[in-house]
Design a protein around this nucleic acid. Sequence first.
DNA 1: TTAACAGGTATCTTTTTTCATACCTAAACA
DNA 2: TGTTTAGGTATGAAAAAAGATACCTGTTAA
Lengths: 114, 114
Amino acid sequence: MEVKTKQQGIKVVADVLDIIGGKWRGPILSYICDKPRRFNELKSILGRITSATLSKELRYLEELRMIDRVEIRTETSSACEYRMSQHGKSIKTLIQHVVEWGLQHRKVVLGEGV
Amino acid sequence: MEVKTKQQGIKVVADVLDIIGGKWRGPILSYICDKPRRFNELKSILGRITSATLSKELRYLEELRMIDRVEIRTETSSACEYRMSQHGKSIKTLIQHVVEWGLQHRKVVLGEGV
DNA sequence: TTAACAGGTATCTTTTTTCATACCTAAACA
DNA sequence: TGTTTAGGTATGAAAAAAGATACCTGTTAA
């Protein structure tokens, strides 16, 4: 599969933005990329997100096959963790590119005057 | 400047998503990246965008120093073009990374079943 | 002098996202 | 047996983004 038309390229960009865009998906993925996270852990790192929103976003990322919801059972506790899926891990490099460009952008747009 | 904390990295990601995210900014940048474009040209390629929205998005991208609004005067006409700024051009590589990852993603998430 | 085109602005409505608040369930604990 | 912890759901309000529609301004073209 390859980019055949400009129009198709645009649609691919839209696909990706649907995954990492919005107010919370980028941050959620970044944190889970870092290491597996529990629901309440994410909730407290993200700060102002509500349970309802976090729950919805996690289910959506799972549906997109970016993350896995893994139930963890020991003798004394049952919990669950969210982890990057096999495929999801591949977005880490892209996020790194985003961060690198973002830092350049800050230099240019903010750096000169600040 | 470098990424010092996870928190800072997240903010950089949010900065970048503010530029290429949303319904229209990614597509608008992609088209202008390709070559300089006129207002009505963009409007017709983008399809369902309204003048008000296009105008607002272009002004915002200009404010972010991603694009330049260039007035073009010849003897017979006066028009204007939107072009990538010097800095804006640097996002082309990032958009290419996005497209590349997006194509992989399609293979994994859609490709197996479609 | 009037119409047409390019490049918009102004208002208001609709849709989509996010938030606030309250509540629920199962397991472990004391 | 009652409370705490983890991981949520339900409902409605508020805010943000996008759209529809009408209108404005300065050329050029007939």
